[in-house]
């Protein structure tokens, strides 16, 4: 899962400006959205969903599912590992 977390961090950082956040200090339990962790906002959420579909073939389709998946980098990486199609 560590590899996937690092892969996701690179994927996000290469498409969304993270404003100088040091990715080495962002770990599995850090949140993706909000003022802590990666600091993404609601407008980034759609971009992130598109990135995940393009990179892993994962279609996130509803919000209940999204809330659990996007809780932290670790939960997202776990979902990616279990559902990736590419």
């Amino acid at each position: 899962m560590i590899d996937t977390i690092n892969e996701i961090k690179v994927l996000i950082a290469s498409h969304i400006d993270l404003g100088g956040i040091d990715l080495n200090h962002v770990g599995a339990t850090d949140p993706i959205f909000g003022s802590k962790g990666l600091g993404l906002d609601s407008l980034d959420a759609i971009e992130l969903m598109v990135l995940l579909q393009k990179r892993y073939g994962i279609a996130i389709e509803n919000v209940q599912q999204s809330r659990e998946i996007f809780q932290s980098l670790g939960s997202l990486a776990e979902y990616v590992d279990e559902n990736r199609k590419k």
């Binding site: 003022s35 993404l40 906002d41 609601s42 980034d44 919000v63 809330r67 996007f70």
Partner: peptide
């Protein structure tokens, strides 16, 4: 909720 950055996924909540 989403515009004040309290809950980024609120706009998707039904």
């Amino acid at each position: 909720l989403s515009s004040h950055q309290v809950d980024a996924l609120a706009i998707f909540e039904d």
